[in-house]
Amino acid sequence: MALFSRKAAPDWSGGDIPEREAKCRKFPTPHTDTDDAWFDDTENAAAICNGSYDGIVCPLRAACLVQALVNSERYGCWGGLSQQQLGWMRKKYRAEPEKWTLRNAPPLALFQEGQEAL
């Protein structure tokens, strides 16, 4: 976790347009024993962000991903990716920030048990 942000976060509220609001602000998450379901249940959080439940992808997913990679966020779901996926992208494209796009993200199956990361 960065002590200071290198890149400011996007406007998660979407201004006055509800369709532009980040889904993490309005989608109901399951209650957990800890403080934040977005950091504890990243698989469910990624499904919400990627539109697996309601078919609507978070409108800020790409901006969230770039903000997380620039600021070296290590915990939680960012841009619809798991912690392992974020770490992989950070290492693979360290010198190529122009490739920090969802199109270049590795599939989650790559990190399942028994699989070797590239």
Rank of each mutant, 00 (worst) to 15 (best):
I56A: 13
D54P: 02
A68T: 11
A46V: 12
A68S: 03
S13T: 14
Y53M: 03
A68Q: 14
C49W: 01
P30D: 12
I48V: 12
D16P: 01
L60R: 08
A37V: 12
S52Y: 10
D54Q: 05
N50S: 14
R25F: 10
A63Q: 15
T32W: 06
A45P: 00
G15I: 15
L65A: 10
R61F: 08
S52F: 13
V70H: 00
E19I: 06
A62R: 14
A47Q: 05
D33P: 02
G55H: 06
P28K: 10
A37C: 06
A22S: 14
P30R: 00
R61P: 08
G15K: 07
R74C: 10
Y53R: 13
I56C: 04
L65S: 10
N71M: 12
G51R: 15
N50L: 08
D40C: 11
W38G: 04
D35F: 12
E43M: 04
L65K: 05
F39S: 09
D41V: 09
L60H: 05
A62L: 06
P28M: 03
E21T: 10
G55E: 08
V66M: 09
K23C: 03
R20L: 04
D33G: 04
A63E: 15
L69H: 02
H31E: 11
Q67V: 14
C49R: 04
W38M: 03
D35V: 05
E43Q: 15
A37S: 15
N50V: 03
E21Y: 07
L69K: 00
V57A: 04
N71Y: 00
F39I: 05
R61Y: 04
D36W: 14
I17M: 15
P30E: 12
F27V: 00
G51P: 00
R61N: 07
H31N: 11
D40W: 02
R20D: 09
R61K: 12
Q67L: 04
D33R: 01
A63P: 04
P28H: 02
E19P: 01
V66Q: 11
K23Y: 05
L60T: 08
G15Q: 08
D36G: 10
C24G: 06
L65C: 15
I17E: 06
E21C: 11
P18Y: 10
G55D: 06
N44A: 08
K23V: 02
A63I: 07
E43S: 03
D40P: 00
T42Q: 13
R25T: 04
G14S: 09
I48H: 02
T34Y: 11
E73R: 13
S13L: 06
R74P: 06
E19Q: 12
D16H: 01
R20C: 14
